[in-house]
Design a protein around this nucleic acid. Structure first.
Length: 424
RNA sequence: GGAGAGGUGGCUGAGUGGCUGAAAGCGGCAGAUUGCUAAUCUGUUGUACCGGGCAACUGGUACCCCGGGUUCGAAUCCCGGCCUCUCCGCCA
C-alpha cells in the first residue's frame, strides 16, 4: 500500500510513476475520498470531545445532587449525530482502504522503463550452454524413461498440473530441498522456518496476494483459508501487526509447497514440470531497515545465484522493466535457467524489493536509531523454485544412454548416488 | 467435537459504570549518588489517526482480543466471534 500522505502531497508525481507500469490509476477518486474522510473525522471528533466533557460534567452534577435531565437529553442528541457521522465515516474509510489496496507499488527509479517483458534487461549470464553429441530430450521424456516422473497417474487423481515423483526421482526432489536449505542456513546466514501452508485473508492481503490475485489461489470450501502460492506469505507475515523488537536485518529461509491455480495460463511451456498447480520452493525472505533494502536485494539475488552455480547450471539474470514487475514490487530481478531439451529459458527465481509496500499493508514496523516507529522494508527471492530447477537438471545432465548424472553437490543427499539409470 | 477457565500497556498483574490511557512491580530510557562491575534514589517510558507548528513539540479522538449493543458516560454491563489454557472425546 502506498503512503496516503505522499499521495496527497504529490499526486502528479505518483501518477506519473504508476503510469510506467503501463496502466493508469484513478488517484483523484482516492484523494476525494480521503478529503471527505478527513472532514468527517474532524467533525465527529469535535462532537466527541464535547460529549466527553459534558458526560464528565454530568457525573460531577449528579454527585452534587443537581438535576441533569436537560443535559442528558442534549448529550443524547449529540450522540445520535455522532453515530450518523461515524457510520458515514466508516463507509468512507472502507472505500478508501479498498481503493488503496488496488493501487500497485511505485517502480523504483532504477527500474528500466518498458512496455512488456520484451523490455526486460539482461544483467548477466553465467556459464554457457552444454554441447551435446546427441539431441537432448525434454525432461518429460527423460522422466518417463527413468520412471521417476509419472504425470499420467498424477492426473488421474488430481487432474493436469500435478507432479508425481518416484524412487530416485522423489529423492532428488528432497535432495534439492535439503541442499538449498543447508546452503542458505550455513553459508548465507538465513534462519530456517517451517511455516503453515494455509493462510487466512489478512495474511494474504498483507503481502499483496489479495484482493487482486484471488482468482489465482486455491481457497478451502467453507473456510477463510487459502493454500499458499508461495512461502513469502507465511514468512513475511510472521511479524504482521508488530513493532519488531529484534535487531534487523532478519533473514529467513523456508521450504514449502506452493499452490497456484494458474487460471488462463494454457499455452507455451506448460508441459511436464514447466508449470504446475503444486510445486516445491525454497524461499528467501529479508526484513530490513529502509536504507539497507537495495543492498539486501543484491544479496538475495547473489544467494539464489549461488544455488545455480553450485549445481553448475547455465543461467541468466534479468532486470524486469516497469511493465513486468509484480503488483507489490518496487524492483525485481528474475533468474532463468537454460533448458536444452526445450531450447528455452525457464524462470526459477524472482527476487523482489517491496520497500515498505507490504510492511504498510501488514503493519510490520521497527524502531529506528532515533527510537521512532517506522515501517520496515521487506524483500524476498526464490532460492530457488524446485520444479523448473529439476527440469534443468534432467535436461542438462542427461546422457546419450538415457541416464541422468547427479550433480556432485547433491550426491551426499542422494546416498552417494552418481547417476539415475534407466530401468533395464 | 464436548465441558470449564481466561484474554488489560514490552512483561507480570490490579481494576465490575464517571476520580482509569489505565494502580503497582519488572524491564527500558534520562539524571543524581555511591569505589566496586552493581546497588540506591528521582524523573520518564504505548500505538494509530485528525488538526496546529520548519521543528523540538502541541490540541483532539480512538484503542484494555475483535465486532455489535445498552448508557448522558463502558476496560468495567449485554450479545456474537476469534484465540489461549485445563479436562474429556477423536486422531497423525
Amino acid at each position: 500500500m502506498l503512503d496516503i500522505k505522499k499521495l496527497r502531497e504529490n499526486p502528479d508525481e505518483i501518477s506519473r510513476r504508476l503510469a510506467l507500469r503501463g496502466k493508469t490509476y484513478d488517484l483523484q477518486a482516492v484523494l476525494a475520498l480521503d478529503q471527505d474522510r478527513r472532514r468527517l473525522q474532524t467533525e465527529t471528533e469535535k462532537l466527541k470531545s464535547e460529549r466527553n466533557s459534558a458526560s464528565k460534567e454530568i457525573g460531577r452534577m449528579k454527585k452534587a445532587g443537581e438535576s441533569t435531565d436537560a443535559m442528558q437529553e442534549s448529550v443524547r442528541k449529540t450522540g445520535e449525530r455522532i453515530a450518523e457521522i461515524d457510520a458515514e465515516l466508516k463507509g468512507l474509510e472502507q472505500r478508501q482502504h479498498e481503493a488503496m489496496l488496488m493501487i500497485p507499488n511505485l517502480p523504483h527509479a532504477s527500474v528500466p522503463a518498458g512496455a512488456s517483458e520484451a523490455d526486460n534487461q539482461l544483467v548477466r549470464t553465467w556459464g554457457s550452454p552444454r554441447e551435446f553429441s546427441f539431441t537432448p530430450a525434454p525432461h518429460w521424456d527423460i522422466g518417463a524413461r527413468l520412471r521417476i516422473l509419472d504425470f499420467e497417474r498424477a492426473a488421474r487423481m488430481s487432474g493436469a498440473g500435478f507432479p508425481l515423483f518416484r524412487g530416485a526421482g522423489a529423492r532428488l526432489e528432497r535432495a534439492l530441498i535439503q541442499f538449498m536449505l543447508d546452503l542458505h542456513t550455513t553459508q548465507h546466514g538465513y534462519t530456517e522456518i517451517a511455516p503453515p501452508f494455509l493462510c487466512g485473508t489478512d495474511a494474504m492481503t498483507g503481502t499483496g496476494q489479495l484482493p487482486k490475485m484471488a482468482e489465482d489461489m486455491y481457497q478451502l470450501a467453507g473456510e477463510q483459508l487459502y493454500l499458499i502460492p508461495t512461502a513469502e506469505v507465511p514468512v513475511t507475515n510472521i511479524y504482521r501487526e508488530e513493532i519488531i523488537s529484534e535487531p534487523l536485518p532478519l533473514s529467513f529461509v523456508a521450504y514449502t509447497p506452493c499452490f497456484r491455480r494458474e487460471a488462463g495460463a494454457a499455452g507455451k511451456l506448460t508441459r511436464g514440470l514447466n508449470r504446475l498447480h503444486q510445486f516445491d520452493k525454497v524461499e528467501l525472505v529479508k526484513i530490513v531497515e529502509p536504507a539497507k533494502s537495495y543492498e539486501a536485494h543484491e544479496q538475495i539475488v547473489s544467494h539464489a545465484e549461488a544455488v545455480l552455480r553450485k549445481l553448475g547450471l547455465h543461467y541468466r539474470v534479468l532486470e524486469l522493466c516497469t511493465a513486468d514487475i509484480s503488483f507489490a514490487a518496487a524492483k525485481c530481478y528474475d533468474l532463468e535457467l537454460w533448458a536444452p531439451g526445450q531450447n528455452a529459458w525457464l524462470e526459477v527465481s524472482s527476487c523482489s524489493n517491496f520497500e515498505d509496500f507490504q510492511a504498510r499493508r501488514a503493519g510490520i514496523r521497527y524502531r529506528n536509531a532515533e527510537g521512532r516507529v517506522e515501517y520496515v522494508h521487506t524483500l524476498n527471492g526464490s532460492g530457488v523454485a524446485l520444479a523448473r530447477l529439476y527440469v534443468a537438471i534432467l535436461e542438462n545432465y542427461q546422457e546419450a544412454d538415457g541416464s541422468v548424472v547427479i550433480p556432485e553437490v547433491l550426491r551426499p543427499y542422494m546416498g552417494g548416488l552418481e547417476r539415475i539409470q534407466p530401468a533395464s
